[in-house]
């Protein structure tokens, strides 16, 4: 069993050196440094968090979403037809995002994540996985909500991004759809929408990750979607475990079993045991152990310790299944 992360990673840590990105952004906002100066610091921190994940032993790393203001406006600000508006709470977290508002037809303007992916790939011994916020979540958290038309426009825009990432050599691309947990069924036509997003993926493997809640009632439908791996938050979404217990799964799962929203550390043995309960129903050799969602909700040192729990638990699963 391999290990991966969901996307974000804490971008500051204790001490002056750990806060260099925060300082650089403040200086850039005051126009004391150039955009290029800021980018240098961003890439430096991005490399550091990639290296940190790899050093702990994570098999499939991310860029930590280091350059994202938030998971919505990072994309909305880079697409045509959208403005970035008021601050809104991001799900039930203590973080906020700027709400996108459609002001015209939404179009892909150019790569939004490729540079960061390339920087991560170059800095990592382990393969890097770019992450995109999915079309349903982008629409559902925008001012007008998830109209079919808007979801479709986002899907078309993301299709171009997936294509650009595949062309840049991304071996694995992940679509994050946390807003699906707010529903009890898949949005109408989501299979088609997912197919559209992934149309240009080439040989890249793909993951769909849902988090901040359970998806039990739609688990069967999620498993039918054209992704190689389905990522599940099994902490805040522990209710999904019940549905999972009676489902035979053919594709890989990303078991989000380590709580990325609480500092309390799990016992790796307990995490391994929770995974092993599914060894006869889920192909563990194609599956991953993961945090329940992005790790940015934790302090940096604790995020790293959570990764250590993941890696240790994955080893225990490996030992128990060979």
């Amino acid at each position: 069993m391999q290990t991966t992360v969901v996307g974000s990673y804490p971008r500051v840590s204790n001490g002056p050196e750990g806060q260099r990105l925060r300082k650089a952004i403040a200086m850039w906002e005051r126009q004391e440094i150039s955009r290029e100066d800021l980018r240098r610091v961003q890439v430096d921190v991005l490399r550091e968090v990639v290296a940190e994940q790899a050093a702990v032993g994570v098999d499939l790393v991310t860029d930590g979403n280091i350059t994202w203001y938030d998971p919505l406006s990072h994309f909305a600000a880079k697409m045509d037809g959208l403005e970035v508006g008021a601050l809104e709470r991001y799900f039930d977290t203590n973080t906020y995002y700027r709400r996108p508002q459609r002001v015209g037809p939404v179009h892909w303007r150019g790569p939004m994540t490729v540079e960061d992916y390339s920087a991560a790939a170059a800095a990592s011994a382990a393969p890097a996985k770019p992450v995109l916020t999915g079309p349903y979540t982008l629409a559902a958290l925008s001012a007008e909500g998830a109209s079919e038309e808007l979801v479709m426009e986002f899907a078309e825009a993301l299709m171009h991004e997936v294509k650009a990432l595949a062309a840049a050599g991304a071996p694995h691309i992940q679509i994050n759809e946390p807003a699906l947990v707010l529903r009890t069924d898949l949005p109408r036509g989501y299979n088609h929408i997912a197919g559209l997003v992934l149309r240009g993926k080439g040989n890249a493997k793909t993951t769909l990750f849902t988090y901040f809640g359970g998806v039990g009632p739609m688990l069967d439908d999620l498993l039918m979607l054209p992704f190689d791996v389905l990522g599940l938050d099994l902490v805040q979404g522990a209710s999904t475990l019940k549905a999972l217990a009676v489902t035979d799964v053919e594709k890989g799962l990303a078991f989000g079993l380590v709580d990325a929203r609480n500092t309390k550390l799990e016992d790796p043995k307990a995490v391994a045991k929770a995974v092993l309960a599914f060894k006869d129903r889920v192909p563990l050799d194609r599956s991953y152990l993961a945090p329940s969602n992005g790790l940015e909700f934790l302090p940096r040192a604790r995020a790293r310790e959570k990764l250590e729990v993941l890696v240790t638990a994955a080893k225990l699963v490996g030992e128990a299944t060979t």
Partner: peptide, 14 residues
Amino acid sequence: GELVRSYGNRYYHK
């Protein structure tokens, strides 16, 4: 607690 981000470039000791 230690620093976590709340939004943008704002952090707090959670």
